[in-house]
Each structure stands twice: as C-alpha cells, then as structure tokens.
Write a protein that binds this DNA or RNA. Sequence first.
DNA 1: CGGAAAGTGTAGCTACGACTACAATTCAGG
DNA 2: CCTGAATTGTAGTCGTAGCTACACTTTCCG
Lengths: 146, 146
Amino acid sequence: MSRPPETTAGLPTEPTQARRFGKTRTAQSTAIAEDYAELIADLLASVGEARPTDIARRLGVSHATAIKTVARLKREGLATSRPYRGVFLTEAGEALAARVKSRHRLVVDLLRAVGVPAEAAEQDAEGIEHHVSDVTLAAFEKYLRK
Amino acid sequence: MSRPPETTAGLPTEPTQARRFGKTRTAQSTAIAEDYAELIADLLASVGEARPTDIARRLGVSHATAIKTVARLKREGLATSRPYRGVFLTEAGEALAARVKSRHRLVVDLLRAVGVPAEAAEQDAEGIEHHVSDVTLAAFEKYLRK
DNA sequence: CGGAAAGTGTAGCTACGACTACAATTCAGG
DNA sequence: CCTGAATTGTAGTCGTAGCTACACTTTCCG
C-alpha cells in the first residue's frame, strides 16, 4: 500500500502485540502446489502413474480442478504432462515432493511424540506442515532425537 | 496402464496412504476470519476501537482489502460496523476471538516446550494454529501440564 | 472392429483475497 | 465555519481455486 509520509505516526498499538500476521495469505497457493507434488510422487511410486482423475479423487476435488492446477504446476516448472498421458514431475517437482514428504513425516512424528493420537496427527499434519519453518523443523528433529 | 474399470469402487490406492487432503482449501477463509476476529478483539481491548486502517496496517494489506473482509465478517454475523464508526464484534465474533486467542497461546507454548525458539514459535504459530484440531489441542494441553 | 464406458480436456461461472484508483466523509486548525 | 489532510468507502481488475456442463480421446470388450 502507498505508505504516505509516516501515516504510521505514533500508531496507538504497542509493538508488544504486533503479531506476525500476513503470511497466511498467498502462502496458500504454495501449500496447494506442495500437496499436488507430494500426491503425484506418491501415485507415481505406488501405482506407476498419476492420472488427473486419481489426483482429483484423492484431493477431493473435481477432475477439472485437478487438471487446471496441474496446468499451473506445469507453468511453474514443477510438473509435465502430455494430453491423455498422465502427469509427471520435473526434477524441481520431485525435489519439492521429497522435501514435503520428509517434513510431513517429521510433523507427524512430533505430534505423536507429544501425545496426539495417530489419526488426528495425520490429519492435522496435513494442514500444519505447510506452515512449519526450517527453524521449527530443526527444533522438531532435535526434540525427536533425544 | 492396466486400469480395471473400477470407479471409486476399490480404488487401487491402499488406504494406508489415503492421507486426508482436501481440508486446506476452503479452510483458508476460515483462517482469515479467525485472524480478523482476533485482531479486532486485540485492538478493541488495547486502544478501544478497531479502525479499518489499523486493521489493514497490522495485517499488512490495503485498507480496501480490510474493509471488504470486514464486510464478509458482517455477512457472517461475526462483526458489526457503521460507516466511519469503526468495527466491533458480535457475541459470536467475540467467542471466536477468545477461542482463537487461547488456541494461539497453547500452540506457542507447545512449540516452545519442544524447543522452538521464541520468535519462530510466534511466527509459525500464526499459520499453524488454524489447522490444529480440538483433539490435538487437548493433547497439547495435557502435554504442557505434565 | 466398432461401439460404449471411462477418462481427459475445455469453457464458462462463482467466490475470494489482493490491489489501485477514485470518491466521499470526518475532523482539526486556523 | 470552512478547508485540507487523513480516514473511510466504492469500483473495477487480476489470479486462483472450485464447480458444472459439455466435447473429445482412449481403451476395452463383445
């Protein structure tokens, strides 16, 4: 926004509670890309191919949505696909998938370690994992090792 | 591609990895509503009023965005406002804010308890808190008590 | 081999969050 | 009380995720 010359002038809010909002926003498209990359990798590994319909079913969206999102991943250089031939990951896509997968495991393990039931840990990790910074991830790792 | 004509029936993917995706999606607007409710409550408590410009500044968005989102909150019965008179929370909005606030604290405390540095804990909690289920929250509480 | 079923792709719509640009209102000094 | 700055509100645009509906390939089976 156009920050006029010190509009912020003596803003009445103490910095004490100036909590860091503002990341939740655009972060979502990243989270979705991560989900797709991870899922596509899973499908390729387990059934040998990643078809739009399977992706859609697993994500609980329509196939049209899945196809559109895959198109975005292609634009971003994470995936490739040829009409009627299934979806594949580029190197960047595979790297992303690998990162996401290990992070997911770590989050689940951490949750379980502090007493969260298995099922809840799995489900919540799905949402949580996209918001865990490297610093926090490292802390999780350290905690789990001890 | 030996894909038998099974639609949803016995989908070839083992349930083992049928991870629960699909919540990340519409969940976002909920997360945003939570952020706003919490922030508005904060502003009302600390400076006595919640003005669109302050909300916008704290969230790092334009004032227009803040105003539009507040309009949505009003539609959803969480907030009220009259032109040029600031924003207030309905009972439902206050209840939401209170819940969000306590959950936020719990998440931060948990993160810190497992060794996450204060700053990272605060920042990550902002994103994580929206994805923590009641079951997980209860587990956090229990863990922290011991 | 020739359909029909399944899967794939395209089009067109909605809702949302974000933005910029512009209009309207308050309110504080002079 | 009147004017200009700050705030507030409105309009219009963009990009993305979601959907349904319809069209087009593949593939499988009789």
